[in-house]
Every structure is written in C-alpha cells, then in structure tokens.
C-alpha cells in the first residue's frame, strides 16, 4: 500500500488530505457516509472510521493512546486488538512470506496485514475452488453407464480410448489444467 495513500479523482491523483482538509468530517461517529460508498465496513466491533483513521490528519492512522502512525506501519495499529495474531506474524507463523525462505535475506519479504486482508472487511472473501482431481477420479460410478462397466471403471481407460494413437496431438488440446 502506498504511503500516504492516494486516489485518482477525475484522473488527478489526490491525497486523502486533499479533500479532508476542505471537508471536515463533522460526524465522528461515522453514522452515514456520503463518500467512500464502495467501502463495506465489516470489521466486527471496530465499526467507526476514526477508530483507525486519524480524524485530524487523514494521511495518518491513529493509535488508541492518541499517537499516530503512517500507513506503512499498519501492523502496529492492528496489533492493538489482534495481539495473538500480531505475535504470530512477528514470528512468521502467521501471514505470508515471499521471495525466499532464507531468514533475513534481502529477497525475503513478509507481507503486512493489509496486503492480504482488506482492513475494512478483513474476513476473506469466499473463493471459487479450482477444479478437483479429474483424470484419476477412478472407480466413480458413471452417471450413465453407456460403455461397459469395465471400460467405465477407470478414467485412464477412458483417456486411452479417447486418445487414438493416430491422433496423439488431439489430446494435447484438452489438458487438465485450467
């Protein structure tokens, strides 16, 4: 995440304070939002913008003691409530590490909280799973036993029947990979 965050309004890059210095949010409770309609705030008990966003400087995040941190220091903010997870993340037992498994190598990079979680709705969206095992799905009863039971037994068999040895290239086009 860029720090401080910016957004393109009518193609012009703007920082948060570009608007918020002009339009002071007069509703600290954040009851209604006229802007940021795309944000679905589904963060459990944490249901107010200014719990995290500093009400004075929108390019900073606020901690519970009033101190502010930059957007790059998000983990400090999240840690206030998610202590166990923060502890695990520090050890590397929670979260995702990319680049290299070699500890402290230059290539190693541990993703921070908001690189995986949407801070406004941290719960993961449900995924469409990728296809399950296909070719080796043997012994499954065929829906319609058109072919003999023996042939229907094994997808390897079905595969072999489909791949006429004279048309080996035909099979290449229908690989199991999505």
């Amino acid at each position: 995440m860029a720090d401080p965050p910016h957004i393109a309004i009518d193609g012009v890059p703007q920082n948060c304070n570009g608007c918020h210095q002009i339009f002071q949010s007069n509703s600290p409770a954040g009851a209604t939002l006229n802007y940021h309609q795309e944000i679905r705030l589904q963060h459990g008990l944490n249901n107010r913008c200014v719990n995290c966003h500093d009400s004075q400087n929108r390019e900073r995040l606020t901690l519970r003691d009033g101190a502010t941190v930059s957007f790059a220091e998000t983990p400090q903010l999240c840690a206030q409530c998610h202590g166990t997870v923060y502890r695990d993340w520090e050890r590397g037992t929670h979260g995702k590490t990319l680049g290299s498994w070699i500890t402290n190598s230059d290539a190693q990079r541990r993703l921070s909280c908001t690189e995986c979680h949407n801070p406004h709705s941290p719960k993961y969206e449900p995924y469409r799973p990728l296809p399950g095992p296909n070719t080796l799905r043997m012994g499954e009863q065929l829906a319609s036993p058109v072919h003999g039971a023996r042939e229907g037994q094994s997808p390897l068999q079905r595969w072999l029947r489909d791949v006429d040895p004279k048309h080996h290239n035909h099979a290449t086009t229908d690989g199991g990979h999505p």
Binding site: L136, M138, R150, Q153, S154, L156, Q157, W159, L160, P165
Partner: peptide
Amino acid sequence: LVHGLATTGMTDQ
C-alpha cells in the same frame, strides 16, 4: 509396451 500400463486396470490408487 506402446501405450504404457494405462492399458491395465491399475491406477495410482
């Protein structure tokens, strides 16, 4: 020999 053991009923299972 030509087509491999796929000609048998055997599988990875």
